[in-house]
Design a protein around this nucleic acid. Structure first.
Lengths: 341, 341
DNA sequence: CTGTTAGCGCGTTCAC
DNA sequence: GTGAACGCGCTAACAG
């Protein structure tokens, strides 16, 4: 079966290709009757316009690439599938295709592939995930003036487009919630601080305590956690102190879940004796026992912002803000019950 | 900065566009000296060929789409990121771009988008994940004669291209390993059997027992597990029987990890009193305590096969087998220690 | 309102 | 060996 082009449907409808094109793209200047005939011809011949030809001709952008790093975090990434799916849906709404482009952790060969992608017209813009403190990719893209938006801030000096979760605000809200539940000795378990969001989440914790006149007890803070084993050990250590915490704020749901278990192992009742809050609202979080109070990232909003921002950058539209911060929402569940009198 | 095309570099090198093209694509009929000049001009002008124009002109395929379903499994999908990353690398090796195309669980509107993708030239072929027993997408693609390859068999009557893991063989090997370690009463915990791989994994378990003349005790089999809670309850029930199992085979690492915990909770030592094997070799599996014996999916091989098969289908190359079954490998760790005498 | 024509950037004939 | 010309499928610009 030969490929059916716009010429075929034009002939079939007895019109010129120009008219056919206009009819198909519902341009206003077409007589309804003519449009009908063209549309009919299109379905009859099972016509589907070539996206490639469209792009060559030089119209609107049509594909963007999602760039993420792939390292070897032992915990996998339970977010990824959901996030990418939401992002893809956001793209679809804008009639954009989503390309996936993983780069190896620390590998610096991204330059070639970025250029190939963008200059070669395979994609019109990049969404950068897993941003680091000093991100070479951002520096490179900025210097080459290639269109991108980062998901996550860095502490780079350059002013680049990004969308980020306001982790600090989320953490602040979660810990404030603990305090309002009557908790006073609140510990913190976190990821290595070279992740920006890890810093922000820790900062929110500090801010919450300070605003209530509570002191941050260094003994109750552990911020360099990687594995489950490390985390449980850290929590255990806190619990063994004579003046043990009555609540623990975790930088991540995963850490929070480990904490839940460690608390149980120590013979205490998580949620009652020691309250716990997480961060991320993994699908898992609603199913733990006790279910986990946590901070939810509004993926839909983030993805929409990511795309609209990127489009703004691509089209050089100065009306669209180049930066956006998204407030997360607190989801209260069982693990943060009020403190017993 | 204006877009630099092949014409620019031709002029710059003082040759015709034809020659420039040949030089760039290292066609044999070009004098070395000429080629040098062209190449030099290309780097000088920072030239990057337009992938779009290339495709329009009608050369080789350049992008394939990965289609997956997104439902609401509570456990997230810890595989996804790794898998997609490996797949993307396989694509990159073939100079292919990878498009991501999620469809909602059970949503039947995929037809339009598939056609738009394939007929519209946005992608040249599809990789179908999350295949179901009776998969409408496969039926549709086959009937429309659109190029695709499925990751996973179904029990469809149609003969379609697929790559799949030989789950049964993997499960057989794992359970055989348990038996050889001296285990005799082996339980099985599995996912709902409407997943094809769930059936295969269960079948492998049965096959192993039978080949050693052991009976499958229905009391020791639970195959409709979803959540951690359900799984722990199921394992607990097995453990409470007077004649408790001395090993448990799980259809999934996640289930296996839940089992590990349930065994601990029952006051038994996992790996010693009750051996456990999983399936998948999640990054997590090496870090549990005891570390988890499991069955590893060779992602690299699977991805390469997926792509080569798909290319075969696209190019209608009858030399490339349309079906492939990949044997997984057993990874022995601590959770399957020998049975005590 | 509609038909015709000129590119978009490239690979590929076909003559030289 | 190399240059010129054509066509991939489509949209935009210009005539009618």
């Amino acid at each position: 079966m030969p490929k059916v082009t716009i010429i075929d449907i034009a002939r079939r409808a007895g019109v010129g290709v120009g008219t056919a094109s206009r009819a198909l793209n519902n341009s206003p200047d077409v007589r309804p009757a003519t449009r009908e005939r063209v549309m009919a011809a299109a379905v009859e011949l099972n016509y589907h316009p070539s996206a490639v030809a469209r792009r060559l001709q030089g119209r609107r952008s049509s594909v963007i690439a999602f760039v993420h790093e792939v390292g070897d975090e032992p915990a996998g990434d339970m977010h990824f599938k959901d996030f990418i799916s939401v992002l893809a849906r956001s793209c679809a709404r804008q009639d954009l295709d989503l390309l996936i482009h993983p780069i190896r952790d620390g590998d610096e060969e991204f330059r070639q592939s970025f250029v190939r992608l963008l200059r070669g017209g395979r994609a019109d813009g990049l969404i950068l995930a897993d941003t680091r403190e000093d991100d070479l990719r951002i520096a490179f893209l900025s210097s080459e003036d290639l269109p991108f938006v980062a998901f996550g801030r860095t502490r780079s000096a350059i002013d680049y487009p990004y969308v980020d979760l306001d982790s600090q605000a989320g953490s602040l809200e979660a810990v404030t919630h603990l305090i309002e539940q009557g908790r006073r000795r609140i510990g913190f378990i976190g990821l290595p601080l070279h992740y920006n969001f890890a810093q922000h989440r820790f900062a929110g914790y500090q801010q919450a305590l300070e605003s209530y006149g509570l002191k941050v007890d260094p003994q109750l803070v552990s911020t360099n956690l990687h594995t489950e084993t490390e985390t449980r050990a850290a929590v255990q250590a806190m619990l063994n102190r004579s003046n043990r915490p009555d609540a623990i704020a975790a930088a991540t749901d995963l850490l929070a879940i480990y904490a839940l278990r460690a608390i149980e192992d120590a013979g205490l009742i998580p949620g009652r004796d020691v309250a716990v809050v997480g961060f991320d609202d993994l699908p898992l979080a609603a199913h733990t026992r006790p279910s986990l109070t946590t901070v939810r990232q509004p993926f839909d909003l983030i993805c929409d912002l990511l795309i609209s921002t990127l489009i703004g950058v691509i089209e050089d539209d100065s009306n669209i803000p180049r930066q956006a911060l998204v407030r997360p929402t607190l989801v209260v569940r069982e693990s943060s019950a009020p403190s017993l009198p």
